[in-house]
């Protein structure tokens, strides 16, 4: 932790507890997310890694019974503070979901929607440029440039997920949260997304939740292991995978349970 916590921390969480009604889903999690490294959250199903991810852009606000304690900051600003506008926060902290969920609109509209509602484009030409740039960054431009007016839902699963990543990129976020982005995709589509994540690294702070430990090893530089709502261990990915300090981490990584 100490090696990166000093200068480039994009988001920090300190003592975060999350409750769904009476049930506590997350207990006392503290973690940092930085620009240089892709951070992976791993752990068995129901361990709270997705729940914690959703506290980072306040998507849990939509769940009426959810309650978040502790302090989470973006560039030192408390994201649960009264000065933070949740709509702006979600533009700055983008999200890619487990199942590809393009809008049932054209490919162009899918990308253009975010810049349009945030007033990022100064005209039609500017918007066209943003769409092209976002699709290029999402590695989808060559495949769809001739059919931008086709429906986004007509693409294949892997293309849809890259469209969703492009949609998140289009609003120029600072952080991108990915909630098991490859769990509904085949290995070839997965490889493309992983490639994309590596390319995006450095431009955006990226957090990825995954079930797949090989994936965490491939794309991330830092890994956090969650179990039963607690953050068991975090550190450089190579260290977590080769030399875990905690017994439970070792058991999970070696496939003893999970």
């Amino acid at each position: 932790m100490a090696d990166t916590a000093t200068t480039t921390n994009k988001m920090t969480a300190r003592g975060v507890n999350v409750f769904y009604g009476e049930k506590q889903a997350i207990q006392n999690v503290s973690i940092d997310v930085d620009l240089e490294n892709v951070t992976a959250f791993i752990g068995p199903s129901g361990c709270g890694k997705s729940t914690f991810l959703r506290t980072l852009n306040r998507m849990n606000d939509t769940v009426a019974s959810a309650r978040v304690e502790g302090r989470i900051t973006l560039d030192g600003e408390d994201i649960y503070g009264s000065a933070m506008d949740v709509v702006q926060l979600r533009a700055r902290v983008g999200m890619v979901f487990q199942k590809p969920n393009p809008f049932p609109k054209s490919i162009y509209e899918n990308i253009a929607y975010g810049p349009r509602i945030h007033g990022l484009a100064s005209g039609k030409a500017d918007l066209d440029q943003i769409v092209e740039k976002s699709l290029r960054r999402a590695g989808l431009w060559e495949e769809v440039k001739d059919r931008l007016n086709d429906s986004g839902t007509a693409l294949s699963g892997g293309q849809q997920q890259r469209l969703c990543i492009g949609r998140a990129i289009a609003v120029e976020p600072e952080v991108i949260l990915m909630d098991e982005p490859c769990s509904a995709l085949d290995p070839i589509a997965t490889a493309k997304i992983e490639e994309l994540i590596l390319e995006l690294r450095g431009n955006y702070a990226i957090v990825i939740v995954t079930h797949n430990m090989q994936q965490a090893a491939r794309v991330s530089q830092r890994t956090a292991f969650f179990h039963l709502g607690r953050l068991v261990e975090q550190g450089p990915t190579t260290e977590i995978f080769t030399n875990p300090r905690k017994e439970r981490t070792k058991d999970y990584i070696t496939g003893r349970y999970g």
Binding site: V87, L89, R90, G94, M95, F97, F103, I117, R167
Partner: peptide
């Protein structure tokens, strides 16, 4: 589908934009 709501909220649409646009 709730995924459409999530998608719109996730790129920073306000609740009223989610309702009227999607």
């Amino acid at each position: 589908p709730p995924s459409i709501r999530d998608a719109a909220l996730g790129i920073g649409a306000s609740p009223i934009q989610v309702v009227f646009h999607h």
